[in-house]
Design a binder for these strands. Structure first.
Lengths: 232, 232
DNA sequence: GACGAAATATAAAGCAGTTTATATTTGTGG
DNA sequence: CCACAAATATAAACTGCTTTATATTTCGTC
């Protein structure tokens, strides 16, 4: 897992938004690396707040960034956590709106920051980067649309199964996911009680085992098959 | 209202996705108008289905297009209806995935269709168009993110109030919205019963009046104020 | 190794949505 | 204008989530 420890617990990435760097050819990558500045954020540091007006594009070179909002009753709701190689900042830059989420560094994090002007120049001059940026934003849109459809049509246990599988695939092999149930609840925007119950259902089916800060998935295949049956 | 009749009832646009044409300067507009081909679709005709592989960008020059999906139990769930001047096709073109929704013409509809190649050329050559396309996709992302947040945090009556206000503003002045409750229910991905009940709540507050195929909003201000109070 | 904080588990009451069912009102076509 | 289909309204039983509450387990620390 590329994310590092926080409060003694590694944080698995809940939702894999479209990666940015990995899709770029080496050359274009080098052109970007030659631009902007690199900034460091330590674990837990705030990168920006919802409503801020900063307009720059950021690429995560190390660590992770969690995007969240405070609900009406003050509860934290996490949209996503982006990891190394992923990028953010498209909304302020391209849609011209303030930051839509709070962003916090998870683990020791290095960001490459490109200003509005640098970004404009890059987009005008570099066809590779241009199509990569368009691809990046479009994939974000796709992922959020799927998230919306899932929330509209699937019960929590199925959404939970999906995201457990996604986390599993990210840490190829290891059957143990290190995450607190409260974090999972935040990510799915449900109460801790509901999440615990949904996990209990999966446990009842023999699909997961749960403990203090971890969830084991003995058989990825069994979970996958159960999920497919669940989706009809 | 720019959408025309369907089944005898005009269909109000439920969700205003980022407009495309209106944001473009005349010149760039003319450059686009010189490209692609124009196709006609009559009311109710299918433009594409979820899963199709066609990769082209479409701009609505007249009429409207409704994007929907079939749920697990066969029910129709509408994501959005785009009207004149708006565009679609970014996911297949830029994210490289098949069509994510079924698309159907609402009313007599004219589409300007740009092929993948034409689009690539336009993006490479024309800075105005490039930033407009980026802006367009980013605004779609923004709107879907807000939709997701609303569904996660607001009760149906508040979401309903929001979308009624949005429809009102689109038909500046006229207090009567012509829409069936079943359409509203589809757009909000809830049952007809739940929607009818939510409308009854608003009616109880004196904020709306309802009838066969229409909803009246006597005071936009009153509804706005109620909504603000509702959001705390 | 005992203590306290954090995390998990579960119960119970409440609420907002679901499906199913029935009645009533409204518009349309013969 | 009458008959029928479409749209609306409302009730009742059920489900999945909420909040609140309590108990238990686990881990870190002193």
């Amino acid at each position: 897992m590329e994310e590092t420890a926080r409060d003694g617990l590694a944080v698995a990435r809940p939702l894999v938004l479209g990666s940015f760097f990995p899709g770029l050819p080496q050359e274009a990558r080098a052109r970007i690396m030659a631009m902007g500045r690199v900034e460091h954020r330590r674990d837990g540091a705030w990168i920006h707040q919802r409503g801020d007006h900063g307009k720059f594009f950021s690429i995560i070179e190390r660590g992770a960034v969690r995007f969240s909002r405070l609900g009406l009753s003050g509860e934290v709701r996490v949209l996503a956590t982006l990891g190394t190689g992923e990028a953010f900042g498209e909304l302020p830059l391209f849609a011209g709106v303030p930051r839509a989420y709070d962003a916090q560094a998870i683990g020791d994090t290095m960001l490459r920051i490109l200003s509005h002007d640098e970004m404009d120049r890059l987009l005008a001059e570099d066809g590779e980067v241009r199509s990569q940026v368009l691809r990046h934003v479009s994939r974000q849109l796709l992922i959020v649309l799927e998230l919306l459809e899932d929330e509209r049509s699937l019960p929590l246990r199925a959404r939970l199964g999906k995201s457990l599988l996604a986390m599993l695939r990210q840490q190829d092999g290891a059957a143990r996911i290190r995450i607190r149930q409260s974090d999972l609840a935040e990510q799915h925007a449900v109460s801790l009680v509901a999440l615990s119950k949904a996990l209990a259902e999966l446990r009842g089916e023999g699909l997961v085992m749960t403990g203090y800060g971890w969830i084991d998935i003995p058989s990825e295949r069994a979970l996958t098959q159960w999920l497919e049956a669940e989706l009809d």
